[in-house]
Structures are given as C-alpha cells and as structure tokens.
Amino acid sequence: MKLCVLGCSGSDLPGHHLTSFLVDGRILLDAGSVTSSLSLDEQAAITDIFVSHAHLDHIKDILFLADNLIEFFGHHTRPPVNIRGLPEVLDAIATHLLNDTIWPDFTVIPANSPVLTYQPMPAASHVSVGGLTIANHPVNHAKHASGFVLWGPGEKEILAYTGDTGPCDAWWHWLSNFHRPVRNVITEASFPNHLEELANISKHLTPRLLRRELEKLPYKPRVYIYHMKSPFSEQIQAELLESLDGFSYHLMREEETFEF
C-alpha cells in the first residue's frame, strides 16, 4: 500500500496544503488538496474518495476535481468517481455544495454519464476497492465524522486514519479489537496544550490529549501526525517531543510517500 501526502496541514497558507492523501494512485482519503497537487492524468486515475467529514478543508477539491474530469465523461469512457462516507456526510455535500447553487451537481451531469456518484457507508461497514479493504468507524468530530482502516493481503499492510477527531473511546476500542494489530495510525494534533479548551470545543487534539488517546491501545503503533495549525506548529512539535516520549512518530509533510 503506497500513500502519498497531497496535503496534511490544518491551515491553508502558502506551502501548507489542506488534508488529502492518495493511496495506490487511485483512492483519496479526503480531498482538501487534490487539483493543485496532481496532474490531470493523475486526477483521471482516481476512482474513489473516502470522506471523513464534511468540513470544507476536507472536501473542497471534490468540486474542482469533478470540473477537471468532465472531458473524460462526455464520451462515456469511464465509470463515475465514487464518493464514500457516512450517509449524513454525503447528504451534507449534496445539500450544501453540489446543489447547483454553490457548485453544479456533478452526480447528474453529464447526462447518462455523471462524473460523481454517492456510495454511502453506514457506520462500521467496509468495502473492497483496488485490492484493499476499507472499513469505517465514527469519531468525535463535526456533526458526523468517521475514521478509516485500510488493509491489504500482506500481514503488515494495514493503516488507520482517524481524520479530524477529539477524544473518542469508541474509536480506540474498535482499533484495539481489530482482527489484527493496526500498527500504523495517521492522526491529528491541531492545537498546543494551552489551548486544550479550544481543542475540546472544536473536537480536536493537543499533544497531551493525543498521548491519552494512544494509551487506550494495548500496543504502541507507529504514529503519523497531521493537521497541525500552522501558527502553532513549532510549539506543537516541541510538545509532541515530550508528550509522545516512548512512541515512534513522524510529522507528515506534503509530497512525502510512505509504504505500508
């Protein structure tokens, strides 16, 4: 399983791209920075978008991706791109974005060969895509949000992605009882410790809160940190050094590639 970081920042600033990860060249985990990171041919290879939640920084490039791909659908040359996520998340996208007011509804155009299609994933369900199995589970963020676990046939070919989340016992309990250890976890650290109240209100994590979450697992995974708010990044990094003492972790950067 190959994962490319298209965007991993909690802030939209020059040099900082919003959340999006490309898996095996065809699967997106969220779509905050797609069209500014991939060539048109690379965009055309995308078959599925797994959306953790409907906040704009995780979905905005669904709009521009659909617009860019219109030429591939006018001659009925390929199936639509699947947008997958909790039913409530997909309903929010349909109601508030792809509604012919904010953006054209690319689930019905072009006629008879739409660019996009909705594929709801009820909580605790799974699908098979491109040789991988992908399962979801609710997390504590937004009105409705979920994280995902992706795994392939190899024993170590497994990855969890929390998406944005605050403290969430149910998610870590689910991982703890997964059918095999989830040794790689992409998760967030949005705010420094002194903004813990803000983190709790907005349902995010600080380094200290992240440590408490990871300790809910019966083993120590390799941790990949994303979604740091750029104005606080230096402070967050210093606090992670202390809070994640004893854990193996990595601060994600745009254009990095990982093999799982």
Rank of each mutant, 00 (worst) to 15 (best):
T77Q: 12
P104L: 12
L97F: 12
H96F: 14
L56T: 05
D100N: 00
V51R: 06
N99F: 00
L90Y: 06
D67H: 11
L56I: 09
N68P: 09
L69M: 04
L38Q: 05
S52E: 13
D105N: 05
I59Q: 12
L86Q: 04
H55T: 12
F64A: 13
T47N: 07
T47G: 09
H75E: 13
N99E: 00
A66P: 03
A44L: 04
L97W: 07
T101Q: 06
F72Y: 09
E71M: 07
I46Y: 10
Q43K: 04
I46Q: 05
T101P: 01
L38P: 10
T77I: 14
H75Q: 08
P104H: 05
G85V: 07
T77W: 07
A92I: 10
A45W: 12
G74V: 09
L98G: 00
S52K: 07
V51G: 04
I83A: 08
D105A: 03
A94V: 11
R78Y: 14
L98E: 00
H53Y: 10
P104C: 04
F106M: 02
G85A: 09
N68R: 10
H55V: 03
A54F: 05
W103K: 01
V108T: 11
S39I: 14
N82I: 11
N68D: 12
F64Q: 10
T95P: 05
F50W: 11
L97G: 01
V81L: 05
F64M: 08
P79A: 02
F73M: 12
P79H: 04
N68M: 14
R78C: 07
E71R: 10
D91L: 02
V81G: 05
A45T: 08
P80I: 01
V81D: 01
T47F: 13
H96S: 03
V89N: 00
V51N: 08
R78H: 09
G85Q: 08
